[in-house]
Design a protein around this nucleic acid. Structure first.
Lengths: 348, 348
DNA sequence: AGTGCAATTGGAAGCGCTTCCATGGAGGCG
DNA sequence: CGCCTCCATGGAAGCGCTTCCAATTGCACT
């Protein structure tokens, strides 16, 4: 049996003040005597009173609801670490800040994906929107949301997305560069690169970093073969043969994320190659899979959970007016090359 | 600039009816003429009106909010397929049914975890609670939630949880049995088993099935060595040596989930074993990792996403009074042994 | 003593929706 | 033809909270 829950009026009655005063205390408002504040808190305590968030939203005109949109097709990759970790980070920050987040998966193939996302905002009354790649570079979407009065934060915007809205991410270009530098240092001169999906601009920046590192050594298009995957393990296994059989005979395969690198690794095993003796392989993200495959994968670490957390923090800062600067701010977090056991000097 | 959103009164005015009538149309209420219904829907359309869920909750006394509680420590395993997939399934069902779900991670180590979960319900006004293992067997928690008037559905309850509340799951005992039968058929007679965490009763049922299959062949405690892990990849690698160096010399290692099996596989590689020639390994769940490791893992498939989805459906059925039977119902879904490449006949 | 202002409190009016109850007309039946 | 019931609709009263504005008090300053 649910016994009726105490309301703000119960608290007001018990503490002998008016309802507004309780409201003020609850919301940390100014101009309340300490003695009164304590009395109210006491009443809240004894009644085990909790504000009704629905009523608060209705009256206050603020839903305290955020939406986090992902693009992956959940049918294929329910386990993508990248997205789970972003979500987890966001969830935590929300808990701490008293917000709620609606997680939505809108595959980019969906014909009306932009409408779907905007509808989500209106239907659920979301005040803020967090966009993960590739939506983080969908300028039209960002502007449409902004036009509705919904604040926006992008995660790993690749270029166009920046400046339109606040964002978080790592320096993907530098990550690709650093990883490639390491391979060059080991002596590799012929490379394969598995890029991510078209339109994922931040992932493409990893490729740009890769090319920059090559160029610094006087290497160019003729010294590498670049293919495009879709970030899944399966696309790694699918693309591996083409890379391995290429006349260039690459000695190192650089992948735009860990899942594809794991796929390449698996394909390499399948054709009897010894890793890393016969082939060096690198990933990006430092997802758990990097430690699970054999041998453990050399990769570029990025703090994905923190990315999700910071995204929420930036959004809430905008919503609460803590951050009122006109300029979009971009919060760039640290990345780091993590050397494990899929990289070594090429044998001659 | 956010232009003021249309309210139910705007719709009422435009369609020339009273507010209540619009409400009735929106909620599929009876006793509305088709002509009026059409007129209202037309107005809804032209105004692009969406109900305000906060107001609806406040007035209707129903929040349409569910809570999905997980126990894993997110610090370690942000990627656990099992939980991500449950969540995804739940999210989808909610979208379809017009509910919202709050996903919460409450590590079991948390001293006051029961209070935390119950607080979540009261604070957020959740009407329904979905409990994943091991909370699905926490009878005290289930009863406390029920006592608050919150409906409960358990995912993979192991025993005590059943009957207290509705539940979904597969027949874990049969899954363990089937997998073991397959190994026995291949000729294995000496086994290792890596069980899951204490208190995860549904995972323990896999062990019981394993034992039953052994017993059927006249094998017993002397023919197997059983260790307990914590479902993580790392615990698989940690426990593997003890199993492999055991005087019994097991030829097959059965694991209570895929991550631990992947860990065992990795440890086996590390000591130079050929899989499956030198050792057969099996998992449970059929998570993506089962297809990612090399060689791909033989395991027991369970439809995790569907589990999450069914859980929400059961919960909503209770909440909306579709299901009013006193008896708790348990929805048992199909499992299946998936033979990949980590199992073969033992060599002599 | 008079004026002004800040601090503290409360009254009242909704936020947008649903629920309860009343109303009026259409049909059923003896 | 009167009485009862059923259907379709509307009026009014809140759900529990916040926001706006008014009221009261105390106190510094002239």
């Amino acid at each position: 049996m649910t016994t009726k829950r105490p309301t703000i009026d119960d608290v007001a009655r018990l503490s002998g003040v008016a309802r507004v005063t309780v409201s003020r205390v609850l919301n940390g408002g100014p101009n309340v005597r300490d003695e009164v504040r304590a009395r109210v808190m006491q009443a809240v305590e004894t009644l085990a009173y909790k504000v009704n968030p629905q009523a608060r939203s209705l009256a206050g005109g603020a839903s305290r609801l955020l939406a986090f949109v992902f693009a992956s097709d959940p049918e294929n990759e329910p386990n993508s670490y990248y997205e789970s970790a972003l979500e987890l980070g966001a969830l935590r920050a929300c808990l701490a800040l008293g917000y709620q987040v609606l997680v939505q998966n809108v595959p980019q193939q969906t014909p009306d994906h932009q409408k779907r996302i905007l509808d989500l905002i209106t239907t659920q009354r979301c005040e803020g929107l967090i966009l993960s790649p590739p939506y983080s570079d969908d300028v039209a979407l960002i502007e449409a949301a902004l036009a509705q009065g919904c604040k926006v934060v992008t995660v790993s915007p690749g270029g166009p997305g920046r400046g339109k809205a606040d964002g978080v991410g790592v320096d993907d270009e530098a990550g690709g560069y650093d990883m490639t530098r390491e391979l060059l240092r080991l002596g590799h001169r012929r490379f394969g690169f598995i890029a991510g999906l078209e339109g994922h601009l931040s992932a493409d920046r990893r490729l740009q970093g890769f090319r920059r590192a090559l160029a610094e050594q006087g290497l160019g298009e003729g010294d590498c073969v670049v293919l495009r995957g879709d970030f899944t393990f399966r696309s790694g296994t699918r693309l591996a043969p083409e890379l391995l059989d290429h006349p260039l005979k690459p000695t190192a395969l650089v992948c735009a994320n860990d899942d594809m690198a794991a796929g390449v690794l698996s394909a390499a095993h399948a054709r009897g190659l010894s890793i890393p003796q016969d082939l060096s392989i690198t990933g990006f993200d430092d997802a758990p899979v990097a430690g699970i495959v054999w041998p453990p994968l050399t990769t570029v670490h990025q703090p994905v959970k923190v990315l999700g957390q910071r995204a929420v923090e930036l959004l809430v800062a905008r919503l609460t007016g803590v951050n009122v600067s006109d300029a979009a701010i971009f919060d760039e977090l640290e990345h780091a090359v993590v050397t494990r056991q899929t990289t070594t000097a090429p044998h001659l």
